[in-house]
Design a binder for these strands. Structure first.
Lengths: 356, 356
DNA sequence: TTGTATGCGTTATCAA
DNA sequence: TTGATAACGCATACAA
């Protein structure tokens, strides 16, 4: 097993350096982690020998195992990670997390969603992290249970609560209600809704609000409730298009189908800015002017909403991320963070809504 | 905070389950990893006992150490992670990486930059990853050496090359040259340049192109060279403002100082879209119309450039990320990726440049 | 189908 | 200041 061959095909370890130097492994470890526990001279010789043998320094995983710290925080995202970087609004959330956690020297691990070969739960089970942020997961997402089982510190954001874990969210329903009331105040009676998805496997579908399918996403259900509350219109005459993705393209599709089925609509409420942009594009393509012929309201108020002059509901997504990150760090330090932090939403009236 | 579950003083381990069940540790391990190596009945009993004891399943770090796989890829970013989520253009790059790596079940670890308490090299030494993407690091960034020492698979993107590691980049200089020539073709003779940073510690400074300070960033130096090549103007009359940050605010500051010192400028070349937006804002604030009074060219062509009608240099940042991710995965699989992939840049003329 | 023994590469506790 | 040794928690040949 032991070979004195000068060509170690295998990565050199701390023991190899110790052996080559005729000292104990502890000394090598000390050279890296406790400089004052050994003479400067010996320490220098250790580093020289390490370089000579190609010893890359303490193995991170072995060290993590030993000191019981992974040095990273994980984020569970409802969709494929690809999506996390597609919406300017969700990158703001991630920015908030890093703003809070980077100073502590903690990395941010984006945990991959499921794929054919790698079920989602296995990736959350295998994530080398000291804590998790559960972001906007569906109430039937198996990863929630998998995360719970891991018994690591967790913070929940915009998703179903779990007893004993800090929650960070926004006044989702209230924001939607304000959006709806804004339209009512402007005199609109024929309003369509473009919704975010209802369940992980959902696909594009046009329904009416009186018979909604089961909704597994807290954000979607809260906002829909807010819309209904604010509109006070008969649900059976309220068309709702449920989108599979939160994308401009999907918003355009939604608008097309809504307007095809209900040409008399004078306004559309959307559950995200991205969807609103898509609606606007589709509306213009069929010759409708905004806001003259059609009023549109978004949700989120990401960076691009200002640029586009979109009337929308503002939510502090970066702050949301920061609070989540801070709560998680407090948990790691044995402190007790606020059990619940609900951030305010507010209506921002710009140029895409108008009197009817 | 307190949970009703039987709180074990210490996290239960595989051994505990084995002991409680009177079987060997290997059996527990098999129950989780090799279902077919034991009877369905015993497997079921294992899971039940695990639940009863609160055993969270195999410890990810211990497992990682044993199987020599971290299950994640790391990204080294030139600035604080906060910045990675601030520029729509760099999020496109990250999106490309995840698009390539998520399918393989690999997480993406964003390695934190330095802070007062945590030197940057320690975080790269301690990152639990199977490979690294070095993105746009300065040639004097100590993390490059730290990464090299680790002897893990690496891919270099938009930064100094290292012998033996795949490189992914763009035609940086060529793009800049086209931008400059575009202005010359339009008849401009008085041109200012807004540059990205030259060194990690750099601060805002106005210089002339004939005496540039040492540049540690490959992207900045390539683009500056391209500008000089394309402009063919005397360097001593070419003002360059070097920005500390790649932000709209910094672009506005740059424009203000450039135009204060050189009121006769008719055009400004910027090394990023973000900087261009800032220049445009500052120009408008001082009563200059774009492009009538001032032509502006960006770089990157991120999503917002189209919306703003910015003349800019397009680069395929998402593709860049995808290729980097794919190359890294090939490395992990023992395959040999292309040693070098240089993606094309192209001039996109929109509404912010005009004849002079 | 199940058990035994060993090693993955460290760090921590003690003793010298 | 340095050394011997036992964890850290698991997976895998190999034996039974």
């Amino acid at each position: 097993m032991t070979r004195e061959a000068p060509t170690p095909r295998r990565r050199a370890t701390l023991k190899d350096v110790a052996a080559a130097l005729g000292v104990s492994p502890a000394t090598i470890s000390n050279a890296y982690n406790r400089p004052h526990h050994l003479s400067a001279d010996l320490r220098e010789r250790v580093f020289q020998m390490a370089q000579q043998l190609g010893y890359p320094g303490p193995h991170p995983t072995a060290r993590s195992l030993r000191i019981q710290q992974a040095g990273a925080l994980g984020v569970l995202y409802p969709e494929r990670l690809f999506q996390a970087f597609s919406d300017p609004f969700s990158t703001e959330f991630l920015r908030g997390i890093t703003a809070a956690t980077e100073g502590a020297g903690l990395g941010l691990l984006l945990v991959p969603a499921s794929s054919s070969s790698h079920p989602a739960v296995s990736t959350v089970q295998g994530a080398n992290v000291d804590g998790l942020v559960l972001y906007s997961l569906a109430d039937n997402d198996p990863r929630m249970q998998a995360a719970l089982v891991r018994q690591v510190p967790m913070v929940l954001v915009d998703q179903p609560r779990l007893e004993g874990f800090p929650f960070v969210g926004i006044e989702d329903q209230h924001g939607a209600e304000m959006a709806a009331r804004h339209l009512i105040d402007l005199g609109h009676h024929k309003v369509g809704i473009v919704s975010l998805k209802f369940s992980p496997e959902s696909f594009d579908i046009l329904i009416t609000a009186n018979h909604p399918p089961t909704c597994h996403y807290r954000v979607s259900s809260s906002r829909l409730e807010g819309y209904l509350e604010g509109l006070q219109l008969p649900a059976e005459h309220l068309p709702v298009f449920i989108c599979e993705h939160n994308s401009l393209q999907n918003g355009a599709l939604a608008a097309t189908q809504l307007l095809d089925a209900h040409p008399d609509l004078t306004a559309i409420l959307t559950m995200s800015d991205q969807l609103a942009f898509g609606v606007m594009e589709a509306a213009r393509n069929r010759g409708l002017n905004i806001p003259e012929d059609l009023s549109v309201v978004g949700y989120d108020d990401g960076a691009s909403a200002l640029q586009a002059g979109l009337t929308t509901i503002h939510q502090p997504s970066e702050t949301k991320g920061r609070l989540a990150g801070e709560a998680l760090i407090q948990l790691l330090q044995g402190q007790v963070p606020a059990a619940e932090q609900i951030l305010p939403t507010r209506l921002v009236v710009r140029g895409t809504t108008r009197n009817f």
